[in-house]
């Protein structure tokens, strides 16, 4: 520590708490990026983090058979008017079992837009197991827009397993998320997305999953709530190129004057590809509100509880 020229301040610390659940310096490996520069970094015997030579991002290298270690790579933007594109490449060694926590928080009190476009590439080795958590959060009372456009590319080798939890609950004005995954034999991908939009926010999330190896499987589930004038679009494309199983589900609550679009696209290129898509968009069931009101909650409190539970 100390070799980097940025220091974490109070606002940034609070945002780190929101996106990475960090109250203090995390255990294990980490790389904290603040306002366009690495602020703090720590590596372990098994996990190395190195800056790319051209300065465009970092490489995270996890040795084969590393077990029960974690990597945190949060990003905070607290200066107005910052626009950046960052490449983070994760090399996850064969047979390892790790947790990766990423997240981006923007605090924009100025009038210029702040934008962070993170491109995360995962190379998940044979039989490796990864849990990936990514949270997005924005705040600040300035007029400046808060924009996040994450791109995630996943290459999964034979027998690997990856669980991705992606959460964006508040304060991001515009987001366009793209996730592409290629799965080899017996690989398994699980995606859980949670999204809440309000005001005039715009969120688009698109998934392309290619099931290329025999018995590869994917389960992509999005739960979202769109309030006020916000717009959401969920695109989920699963290509079954061999004997495989794919399931995608979009479950959305629409409120006020929001708009939600769900676009499923299943392509089976093999007779043994089993693909399922489910999509449901609807308002909160009236009887749910009534039940909670009979417990003494007001209509607004009842709605908030239902939305909270739904996104938990």
């Amino acid at each position: 520590m100390g070799q980097f020229d940025q220091k974490i301040d109070a606002i940034q610390m609070r945002i780190l708490e929101e996106v990475a659940g960090l109250h203090e310096v995390p255990e294990g490996a980490y790389n904290i990026r603040a306002n366009g520069k690495t602020a703090e970094r720590s590596t372990t015997a098994n996990i190395d983090i190195v800056s790319k030579e051209d300065g465009s991002g970092i490489d995270i290298k996890i040795r084969p058979f590393t077990k029960h270690e974690s990597v945190h790579i949060p990003v905070v933007l607290s200066e107005s008017g910052l626009t950046e594109t960052v490449y983070n490449d994760f090399y996850i060694g064969e047979g390892s079992d790790v947790v990766i926590v990423a997240g981006c928080g923007i605090h924009n009190c100025g009038d210029q837009k702040s934008e962070h476009d993170g491109i995360h590439r995962f190379f998940v080795g044979k039989n490796a197991k990864v849990k990936y958590v990514e949270k997005h959060y924005g705040e600040g009372d300035g007029k400046g827009q808060r924009i996040l456009n994450p791109v995630t590319e996943v290459t999964m080798e034979e027998g690997s397993y990856m669980e991705m939890e992606m959460v964006q609950i508040k304060g991001v004005d515009s987001t366009k998320r793209t996730t592409v995954a290629d799965l080899d034999k017996n690989a398994k991908l699980i995606v859980r997305e949670r999204l809440l939009t309000h005001g005039s926010q715009d969120a688009e999330s698109s998934f392309v999953v290619n099931l290329n190896g025999e018995d590869a499987s994917a389960d992509v589930v999005s739960r979202s709530v769109a309030k006020e004038h916000s717009h959401q679009k969920f695109v989920s494309q699963i290509n079954g190129n061999t004997r495989c199983a794919g399931h995608t589900e979009c479950d959305a609550i629409i409120m006020d004057d929001a708009k939600i679009v769900a676009v499923p696209e299943l392509t089976a290129n093999d007779v043994d590809a089993a693909l399922i898509h489910e999509a449901a968009i609807g308002k909160i069931a009236g009887e749910q509100i009534i039940k909670l009101m009979t417990l003494g909650l007001t209509e607004e409190e009842a709605e908030a509880q239902i939305v909270n539970g739904f996104l938990k």
Binding site: D251, K291, M293, F310
Partner: peptide
């Protein structure tokens, strides 16, 4: 209204209970 009566001391167990996605029994 419903809320007001509930807070005055009236409780009602439905013939057909309502289901809630995500809300836990404890909640």
């Amino acid at each position: 209204g419903i809320t007001e009566r509930a807070n005055m001391g009236i409780s009602f167990a439905f013939q057909q209970p309502v289901r809630f996605k995500g809300v836990q029994v404890l909640d």
